[in-house]
Design a protein around this nucleic acid. Structure first.
Lengths: 137, 137
DNA sequence: TAAATATTTGCAACAATATTGCAAAAAATA
DNA sequence: TATTTTTTGCAATATTGTTGCAAATATTTA
């Protein structure tokens, strides 16, 4: 039994070819992936709908998280510590490279707090930095 | 000649009922507007396609800017200083209220700088804070 | 291991959102 | 006012995402 199967098992998900394929893609990628990236690579094996459903399931289980973007595209990336709370991943900064277009989770860079005007009560913050990544500089 | 006509003229755009109607909506609104908001209010006067094209034109001219969101919806808001560079509006923090769903541009709150890992060169930053706004607290 | 049960997948249909070409209409210019 | 330029609406099409349901696959139980 390989790593991917273990991840699925740990999250009480059935072990299927499609899910393993998608996990492979995420682990083979440095940055974040869009639905289209996954479909392009797994589309021969998987139906469009299955890709949508798998991504949704993985987000719910906290295996991946949705990456905020400035251009309103939808990106997903692996959660480093496979944490339980699938919806509180907005605490690290996301970096989008203008050159290679990769989106990278900067797990070690936390979103700084900002002072808001009177009356505004913050609950969650997201931050996206664009520029040149360590490969493209 | 009213204010809205002046704005259009200043940006070398033809003065049309549709464009004035959309400007009115933005100036009447506190926060950011989605395409759907505009269509709902101007839909009787304007075609869907015209709304899309008008928003696009306004963004190009720097009259409005696209607001980053965490839920991948597309929002637009007025540029306060009708600036020329229609693509560098990510320097103020955007606030999304969990209660009333309004998105507000916090023009006075600038996005703080963060220290990135070696090799990453920042060019632009965006920040979205969610929580409760001054009306909903 | 085979049968029973539960989960997942693919297909088809549908819905929402966005884009394009083009001719008609409206606005700006001469 | 006539001419030119810009804008608009319509129709068609593309893209993205969702839902129901039956077939296929995986898991569990005996």
């Amino acid at each position: 039994m390989n790593t991917f199967s273990e991840i699925l098992k740990r999250n009480s998900l059935s072990i299927t070819d499609g899910r393993i394929k998608i996990l492979e893609l995420f682990y083979a990628s440095d940055g974040a992936l869009a639905h289209a990236d996954i479909e392009k690579n797994a589309g021969l094996v998987l139906d469009r709908v299955t890709v949508y459903r798998t991504l949704q399931t993985f987000v719910e289980k906290g295996i991946i998280h949705q990456v905020p973007t400035t251009d309103n595209s939808v990106l997903y990336a692996l959660c480093r510590q496979n944490c339980a709370n699938g919806h509180h991943h907005d605490n690290h900064v996301h970096f989008v490279c203008n050159q290679c277009q990769e989106t990278v989770c900067l797990d070690d860079v936390t979103v700084p707090a900002v002072k808001l005007p009177a009356g505004f009560k913050p609950i969650q913050s997201a931050m996206i930095v664009t520029g040149l990544c360590n490969n493209c500089k």
